[in-house]
Design a binder for these strands. Structure first.
Lengths: 160, 160
DNA sequence: GCAACATTTAGAATAATTCTAAATATCGAC
DNA sequence: GTCGATATTTAGAATTATTCTAAATGTTGC
């Protein structure tokens, strides 16, 4: 519908404006590639790797290169628009959710889930020793997700 | 002193026995290389990379190979004797402290610090949505360490 | 439009990790 | 203790993830 499209456009305009500002604040320009990479991250919130972002970004922008994807991701991270998350022994992944939140990684299926912080819940007060100045907390929770938790878990043996 | 040496030896025997058991529990053998790699990790608790472990391990065992270091680290991780920690965009690092604890990473000097959990402090109760079954929490704290915190921080510009 | 500078691009280079195949070591059965 | 089965170590090749390079292109301010 015409009305909806216009509304969506307006939303994008607002969004873009924010992106422009955040990039500019760190001395970066707002380019079609950076916008596109960011939109890819927003679309599927499954913490994709740079490789996956590359593949997805090519759909709407077939000529984009891997180097540019890395460049864009770096710029977005520096600008505080996305953050980077690590999985053990895996390629770095990216997350566009900048609200304070935790991450849940399912040991079974490998899925990644954002865990929102309940505003009523007490701040995870982790006392650090004298002299340390914490700026950011990151909580990673390992376990099984609802889908995998219901399956009968065959305890796997350690085999080489 | 003779007495001290004997005591140290006894300690090692106890330690080794635990290592043997933990390895065996996962179907691994207790080998000189695995023992040595583990001892390297215990000696310097600075979360070394595989590469660093390799270099250090070569001192006491000049013929050990990189492949074996990776193999040993894998076996030790699987056996729950060490754990693996990630730093953004850096090689995987290893930590032999298996007591429940957090990690503090200094943004300035890159140093890694283990943050013990105060027993009196309330468990960091991070409520997860229905259906999720957490098995392990990992808390990473970013900030500045006591040494770097005292220096006058020149705010660095974002440059490419 | 021009000069200065940022960005993109393809591909090369580097770094981290995993794989392969042969040699060696260990374990349990006899 | 010898034998066969299996695990481990080793060197080096292969793969994967990331960074670097240099040339082309785009953007900005004058």
């Amino acid at each position: 519908m015409h009305h909806d499209m216009k509304s969506a456009k307006q939303k994008n305009a607002v969004l873009d404006h924010d992106v422009v500002e955040k990039l500019a604040a760190r001395g970066f320009r707002f380019t079609p590639q950076r916008e596109h990479v960011y939109s890819v991250l927003l679309e599927e919130r499954d913490h994709p790797t740079a490789e996956t972002v590359f593949i997805r970004a090519k759909h709407g922008m077939p000529d984009i290169s891997m180097a540019t994807v890395y460049n864009c991701l770096d710029a977005l991270v520096e600008s505080g628009l996305i953050r980077l998350v690590n999985r053990d022994r895996e390629a770095t992944r990216y997350c566009p959710n900048m609200h304070e939140h935790h991450h849940f990684y399912c040991d079974e299926c490998g899925g990644a889930f954002d865990i929102d912080i309940q505003p009523e819940a007490p701040k995870p007060s982790v006392p650090v020793p004298r002299g340390f100045q914490p700026s950011r907390y990151e909580v990673i929770i390992h376990g099984t997700c609802p889908k995998c938790g219901t399956k009968v878990g065959v305890p796997r043996l350690a085999r080489h």
